[in-house]
Design a protein around this nucleic acid. Structure first.
Lengths: 210, 210
DNA sequence: CTGCTAATATTGACGCTGTCAATTTACGCC
DNA sequence: GGCGTAAATTGACAGCGTCAATATTAGCAG
């Protein structure tokens, strides 16, 4: 009966799913370095070498984990964007809001997404899971006539880069600690605003919130 | 004679500097995971436990390495910015240009700078080395009257985030491969341009280069 | 110049890791 | 019912970071 995970038979039945689940648990509690094949196997109650049947090496396990995390992120972004059907700026802000919220809630999961040394270089499943999130981002800025200096794709990468760069530094506490302790959470809103309005041309508004 | 590294005496003389040098060499050739205390000691020709006298643990070694890398980056940025004494946009571009060039030349060094799990949380030397680069960035955008929607600090973090986010994804090959193979290197110029001109308000120029 | 102390390097051990090989178990299909 | 094969087990290996005990030497006090 493959549907019973706690089966005490020799064969686990659904070990692959159980391994991923325990790996996620370890990732959340102990961080990326805390995820080891042997520890995961221990949690699943199987021998240290049992995972080898489902994941040929550690990177394979971590890649499957990362793909699952990208899928979660996609769902979070989708949910957040359903609450907003407004203008381009609001849609971009909703995207950023969802990613920031996810990363701050599950910092280690978010970090793993970019830990390329721990992942398989061109894993198909992982790649398509990431592309799905990227497609959502494209959806936030396309549709209207594009007469910007930069292309649609460049602007998408710009948004993605900024959100990601901000998060990595915030999660690590670099540069941010002294600033965010004062202004609290919505700093990322100001960051996105800076991107939307530009920082090189001159004043484009009166209100300053951060 | 502490100035002779290849001294065959029992005491190395300048082991700490030699260890850092060999660690940098390993970092460049084998990546972050390739830097191990024992491998570094092997390269230096000392016992596997000799580094413990100079670095209490691995994070201490990696932090010293990262601080040295930040210092190198600071010099690169300084050199690049001396070639440009132009407007704000050109200074920002020069900063980005220097960081991008450094990261593409020494990808593993750049990656280590943000590998917080491998570094000491609040190492003083590392922190001040990073702040020095941050101060250069502040210098690129301050001076003129600030009447932007966002604060000076927010705009600095925005630039830094965008450059960093772009680089991490480009080094990893995420999202970038299919785009950069077409447009080649100067994609990051377009990214910075997007930030300078803004992406939310509407067209602000006619020329489109990427 | 002698002697002592503290710094530095060595050896050895421990538990942990990822990975491989050989073996045992049991499911499912003919 | 037997059998092939997938799945799990045990055991081993080298490499890792770290600690403890030991050996060597540099530098300074007298």
């Amino acid at each position: 009966m493959p549907s019973s995970p706690s089966n005490q038979s020799y064969h686990h039945g659904s070990l692959r799913a159980a391994l991923l689940s325990h790996a996620m648990e370890l990732l959340d509690t102990k961080g990326i370095e805390g995820v080891s094949i042997r520890a995961v196997a221990r949690l699943a109650g199987v021998a240290h070498s049992a995972p080898a049947n489902h994941f040929p090496n550690k990177r394979s396990l971590m890649s499957a984990l990362a793909a699952r995390i990208f899928n979660q992120l996609e769902n979070e972004v989708l949910a957040q964007m359903e609450t907003t059907s407004g203008q381009r700026a609001e849609r971009v802000m909703a995207f950023a809001e969802a990613v920031v919220a996810f990363a701050l809630t599950y910092p280690h999961r978010y970090r793993l997404l970019w830990r390329r040394e721990s992942l398989i270089d061109h894993d198909a499943e992982l790649h398509s899971a990431m592309e799905a999130v990227y497609a959502l981002l494209i959806g936030t800025i396309e549709g209207e006539d594009d007469e910007f200096t930069t292309s649609l794709e460049t602007r998408a990468i710009a948004i993605w880069s900024m959100v990601h760069g901000y998060l990595i530094m915030r999660l690590d506490g670099n540069l941010m600690e002294k600033t965010d302790e004062l202004t609290q959470a919505p700093r990322h809103r100001a960051i996105i605003t800076a991107l939307l309005e530009g920082i090189g041309g001159g004043p484009s508004g009166a209100r300053r919130d951060c």
